[in-house]
Design a protein around this nucleic acid. Structure first.
Lengths: 158, 158
DNA sequence: TATTGTTATACTCTATAACTATA
DNA sequence: TATAGTTATAGAGTATAACAATA
């Protein structure tokens, strides 16, 4: 039991992040900035606050990320039509083009990786990885809720 | 093809990293520092340069990580017995204890996650994830070698 | 001459806290 | 009074470059 399945799953994530960092070196892009573009690509014009919630990151952080992406020409800030406090962030044509390429390459890589799996195992692997991701999300959400409850009980009794 | 297997694999890594950050908040530990302890735990007394290579990080970075882990009592620096330039980094008893606990919990989590997979799928999932990790490592190593070759050809002809 | 580890400096990602404009 | 976004500040992780001691 020297290398567990968890070790391998974590290795996959680490390899991918490292490759992104290398691929984006010297450009205005980065893994964190790509995650912002990813959300806007899938959700359409989005408030910064919604971006912060989607990425589980503070609004302050979003300001900085969007600043760079706007400066680099991938995103566009526009006033919200009905809420004058808010800003709507959208992809520019350059951003749309980048995300189309990225989504395509992402799908190709996913297919290549699945291709490394024995054909008879592929369905089981897809089901299994989905089950593992769901279970992990559940476990960590429970842990977080317990931690928050404990903090509320000890530290900040309202 | 809205959510690919690659998306789920990356989600697993992101969830785990985020949970580590939350669990270690307010302590001297962190994901990067745990990776250092992990290497020393598995390799025994180690030079800082070897740590840098194992973690694919600059030696400067290792200096900072080991500084904090030594200060916090998990690591111990000692002069190398035969090479007076080098330092040997070892776990203290506190570090050994931490890693024993960590390895046990890590194994338990791995078992819990595999438990979420249908029994008939488990062998295929273990094989498949291993195959995916191996393929990804291979692909990225090739990409890196090509990038390095291209940089050498254009930028720094020696 | 090459290697080991360090100091100096800088950039990215992230967080908290205080503030402004608006709901 | 609460929300959306910003400025100010800080800490962690990472990188490059220059340097001292040693091989």
């Amino acid at each position: 039991m020297s290398v567990t399945i968890l070790d391998r799953l974590l290795l996959i994530g680490a390899l991918f992040e490292r490759d992104m960092a290398r691929a984006f070196a010297g450009t205005p892009l980065s893994a964190a900035r790509m995650r912002v573009l990813w959300v806007v690509h899938h959700a359409g014009p989005t408030r910064q606050h919604a971006l912060a919630q989607a990425l589980e990151v503070t609004p302050r952080n979003i300001t900085a990320l969007v600043d760079v992406l706007e400066e680099a020409g991938y995103l566009h800030r526009a006033p919200h039509p009905t809420d004058r406090r808010a800003v709507l962030v959208s992809l520019t044509p350059l951003g749309v083009e980048l995300m189309q390429t990225t989504v395509r390459e992402h799908g190709e890589l996913s297919a290549t990786l699945l291709d490394a799996v024995r054909p008879d195992d592929r369905e089981a692997v897809e089901r299994g990885v989905e089950a593992i991701a769901d279970r992990l999300a559940l476990l960590l959400a429970e842990a977080e809720a317990q931690g928050a409850a404990r903090a509320a009980a000890s530290g900040t009794p309202s």
